[in-house]
């Protein structure tokens, strides 16, 4: 119990530190990097929730592929667009945050109330057979839907860069 508490204390303080750094930096690359650290820490937090497979997916797919793709496209922009990004508060009053804060508060409160006193811990979902059975028997429709959704970016790429190729051929 106490090891879990200590390690969660360390992780959450790291979380808070890098969250503050995100507001502090003015250069976009540095902001991105501190958000990246947050995402890696979130993958570590999944380990504490007995979701090893989710942690691996978070690190391999999310941090290792999607965010690297984002960093790539950041390098395509000129340096002047990336540095000196200022906080623009001119059109935002504090009233904007009231409904958001209320929403988040409501969410947290409802989740608090939903937790029973004696919760039952789940079995390990890291076993590949359990995951396979689970996905194949109960969530097969969802997997097909996902395959369909993931083909959308390809279609979008084709649509957006088609006109250019046609004009180049002419």
């Amino acid at each position: 119990m106490i090891e879990r508490a200590i390690s969660l204390l360390i992780i959450s303080s790291l979380f808070f530190f890098f969250l503050l750094l995100t507001y502090y930096f003015r250069h976009f690359i540095y902001q991105f990097l501190s958000i990246l650290v947050l995402m890696v820490l979130q993958g570590v937090l999944f380990l504490y929730l007995n979701a090893e497979f989710l942690a691996a997916v978070q690190i391999i797919v999310y941090v290792g592929a999607i965010l690297i793709m984002f960093l790539f496209s950041l390098f395509l922009f000129p340096e002047e667009e990336l540095k000196g990004i200022k906080t623009d508060v001119s059109r935002i009053s504090y009233k904007t945050f009231i409904p958001i804060g209320l929403l988040v508060l409501l969410l947290v409160i409802s989740l608090y109330r939903a937790v029973p006193e004696n919760y039952s811990k789940q079995e390990f979902l890291s076993d590949i057979k359990v995951i396979g059975n689970f996905l194949f028997n109960e969530y097969w429709f969802l997997i097909y839907l996902l395959a369909f959704i993931l083909s959308l970016p390809m279609v979008a790429l084709y649509i957006f860069f088609r006109r250019e190729d046609a004009s180049r051929n002419n």
Binding site: Y62, S73, L152
Partner: peptide
């Protein structure tokens, strides 16, 4: 996660 990946790449385009 999968949907976020798709929407992220479309937004980037």
């Amino acid at each position: 996660l999968a949907i976020a990946a798709g929407s992220f790449s479309i937004g980037l385009i």
